[in-house]
Design a protein around this nucleic acid. Structure first.
Length: 215
DNA sequence: TCTAAGATTGGCT
DNA sequence: GCCAATCTTAGAT
């Protein structure tokens, strides 16, 4: 007998905050769902990053290009990119149409479809299956074909919610950047073991020093 | 459990 | 050459 599915309700575009940073915060504690022929893969979103308008590290910073078109769509469209030639990353458009901004999904806590994930990642501990943006896309079997798809569609690949209340949210600087490293634009669920980076809260008084340049 | 270093990879931030 | 990463290995805590 199959386990009943979690009561995840698709998020409507109207429910998404327009503001990039607010959207990144908002998505913590929501759910990413992937429908595959064999069933459903889903997980709780525990880590995101914001790439707002004017951010020099954003793929939209240089203006509209063929490869970054989804970032200029209305909120809730997927932007899938290959990075370092090895990993795909799942982003979602933010801000009104014509404005290039988005958020990056960095980690989820896998909840449904674990056998489907494990079949593709034999021997990998549960905690590591979707801890990191590249692992997340691997766990949900997301590739470049999802670039530009509507995450508010409620099918194939979509975002949803169960509880509607506010959850506590941790904030730090973003991961892996060599510019704009001081910005508090990474959000995560405090206490979750499924978060990929530091899980200590950034205190307002903490200054962030640039890393020493490599020799 | 964490941090760090080195190798790897492909498109153009 | 620069990167929004992963994997393995090694060491500290």
């Amino acid at each position: 007998m199959r386990k009943p599915l979690l009561p995840i309700v698709p998020l409507l575009r109207d429910e998404l905050p327009l503001d990039t940073v607010e959207l990144a915060r908002f998505m913590i504690g929501k759910y990413l769902v992937r429908d595959v022929p064999a069933g459903r893969i889903s997980g709780r979103i525990v880590e995101t990053e914001a790439y707002p308008l004017g951010d020099s590290t954003s793929h939209a910073f240089m203006g509209r290009r063929p490869y970054n078109l989804p970032m200029f769509l209305a909120p809730g469209f997927a932007y899938v990119r290959l990075t370092y030639g090895v990993s795909y990353m799942l982003n979602m458009s933010a801000e009104a149409e014509e404005i290039g901004a988005g958020i990056l999904f960095r980690a989820i806590e896998p909840l449904e479809g674990l056998p489907l994930i494990e079949a593709r990642r034999p021997g990998v501990p549960l905690r590591d299956l979707a801890r990191g943006p590249g692992r997340l896309t691997n766990a949900l079997d997301i590739g470049p074909s999802f670039n530009g798809c509507d995450l508010c569609s409620g099918r194939d690949l979509w975002i949803g919610a169960i509880e509607r209340g506010e959850t506590p949210i941790g904030v730090t600087t973003r991961i892996g950047l060599s510019r704009e490293m001081h910005q508090p634009l990474r959000f995560f669920e405090p206490g979750s073991a499924f978060v990929s980076g530091p899980r200590k809260l950034l205190l307002p008084t903490q200054a962030v020093q640039p890393k020493r340049a490599k020799k």
